[in-house]
């Protein structure tokens, strides 16, 4: 589904990614772990299409298509979703309206009929339950006045509604208390399927207690220095990252 080959990238002449190689197959959940500044979020943002980065070399293929040529909205329409580390506030734009616009954009792209207001509301009510969110959040502006945990749940709500095939969870666990973390993890776990893949980016092993990854990759200085299964997370928890540094 996603194949990253020897990806080098920089921002403002500062090298951040030093040859990333990563392959994600349908149905897999990969976790990328690493310290602050190791390049985790950069990788997530490059996949999603943020333009701030200079791609020096390498390639990213998504379902066989060259991803780097595509605009962020085309990537989204093709099935890539990113749950933001810091979800953005859009004052005055109703959360329901935003979500419906996003869904209709996707339906239109797939050549399907746009969803009407009534059907959308019943769809969204069902999704709300899955992330244990109150309906009142629908009538608020996008992320406006939301707590950290509410923002993250809102991200997952969007993911459940838009049904992407590749979901990037950028530090979705940060700023969550344990209850909220469980809710978010439950939302993700219920959403897992043979067709859907996930790339979870995190500092902590904590998240992985609730979402079972198929693979774990350790990122240091823009390179994947070690890959393994969920045992690796436990090892990291005990030993930290320093034993992996050159």
């Amino acid at each position: 589904m996603l194949i990253i080959k020897d990806l080098h990238a920089s921002i403002d002449d500062k090298k951040i990614l030093n040859g990333i190689n990563l392959s994600i197959k349908p149905g897999e959940l990969h976790a990328i772990m690493g310290r602050n500044g190791s390049g985790k979020s950069t990788l997530a943002n490059i996949i999603a299409g943020r333009e701030d980065y200079e791609i020096e070399s390498g390639s990213i293929l998504f379902n066989g298509k060259d991803l780097l040529d595509q605009s962020p909205e085309d990537r989204a329409l093709d099935g890539i979703f990113m749950s933001f580390q810091y979800p953005v506030v859009i004052p005055g734009v109703n959360n329901t309206y935003f979500l419906k616009a996003a869904l209709n954009s996707k339906l239109k792209h797939q050549g399907l009929k746009e969803i009407n207001a009534v059907d959308f509301m019943s769809l969204i009510r069902e999704k709300l339950k899955q992330v244990d969110m109150n309906e009142k959040y629908l009538s608020r502006a996008v992320n406006d006045g939301f707590s950290g945990g509410e923002k993250k749940r809102n991200e997952i709500l969007q993911m459940l509604t838009l049904e992407p095939t590749l979901s990037i969870l950028d530090e979705t666990d940060s700023g969550l208390d344990i209850d909220a973390l469980k809710i978010v993890a439950k939302g993700v776990n219920n959403f897992r399927s043979k067709e859907r893949s996930f790339l979870a980016i995190t500092h902590y092993q904590r998240l992985l207690d609730y979402m079972k990854p198929d693979f774990i990759h350790v990122l240091i200085d823009g390179e994947i220095v070690k890959s393994g299964n969920s045992e690796l997370a436990k090892e990291l928890e005990e030993k930290g990252y320093s034993w992996l540094e050159k």
């Binding site: 909205e73 979703f81 933001f84 953005v88 004052p91 005055g92 309206y97 996003a102 954009s105 969007q158």
Partner: peptide, 23 residues
């Protein structure tokens, strides 16, 4: 804000009009 909208599949054009109307 624009990138956030783009990432949800909303075009820049629509995003601007949405953000300004929200404003």
């Amino acid at each position: 804000q624009l990138f956030y909208c783009n990432q949800r599949g909303i075009s820049t054009e629509d995003a601007v009009s949405m953000i300004v109307n929200g404003f």
